[in-house]
Write a protein that binds this DNA or RNA. Sequence first.
DNA 1: TGCAATAGGTACTTTAAAGTGCCTGTCTCC
DNA 2: GGAGACAGGCACTTTAAAGTACCTATTGCA
Lengths: 114, 114
Amino acid sequence: MKKYNIPVEAALEVIGGKWKVVILCHLIKGTKRTSELKRSMPTITQKMLTQQLRELEADGVIERKIYQQIPPKVEYSLTDYGWSLKEILDSLCAWGEKHIERNYEDKSLVLMEG
Amino acid sequence: MKKYNIPVEAALEVIGGKWKVVILCHLIKGTKRTSELKRSMPTITQKMLTQQLRELEADGVIERKIYQQIPPKVEYSLTDYGWSLKEILDSLCAWGEKHIERNYEDKSLVLMEG
DNA sequence: TGCAATAGGTACTTTAAAGTGCCTGTCTCC
DNA sequence: GGAGACAGGCACTTTAAAGTACCTATTGCA
């Protein structure tokens, strides 16, 4: 029985941490294979990627589709419930962009190219 | 020189972690004194509260107003820049509520009363 | 024949986030 | 005159998050 003092804590439990929002922001652009996600996140480790994907799946926000073929093919996509996070993800991304621009001069925040 | 692979990482650096979103969700309801914030977050420690407030202030999203009186009085409020997070915070709160309702039966997520 | 790509699992270690405990100072109230 | 409210600071420890390293299996390709 998890208890929250404020509802937003429940949201943080699902999308909190270093990677989940980033993963979801990639999946919002469409279904992706594991290797595609990995390439989109050059600094994530295989272990963290799998782990975070499992947790997101357990929370019902993403779906895992396994193709029975060799070499293996696995695709991840947002579930309907996951799509209910779209507004949050979109505004987070937009805010991040503005924040980088705002702090470009003094704090030198830079978006990697590529 | 901080570098991000995707802009949303910049947003996570400002509002990431266990407490910042919760603090901001309280401040969105209006200016609050340190002790009020502390009471709203029964499980936060004095140290974490101060630390997170300092970081939010350094990022320009909240403002700290000190009244020169005894006993001390310090008020925290969102800056204009902080208010640009309103959309994110609102939808995060709303999503959290829905998530608790959705999982009330099977996973027993409960919002503390009081 | 041996390496790359595919999608992982598992045990272990590191590092960063969070928490504990104890300290400051002044004023009011009992 | 001691206790509590107020807003912290600082050193230290704990715990949880993240990272490293090495393992599985199959196929195609050079």
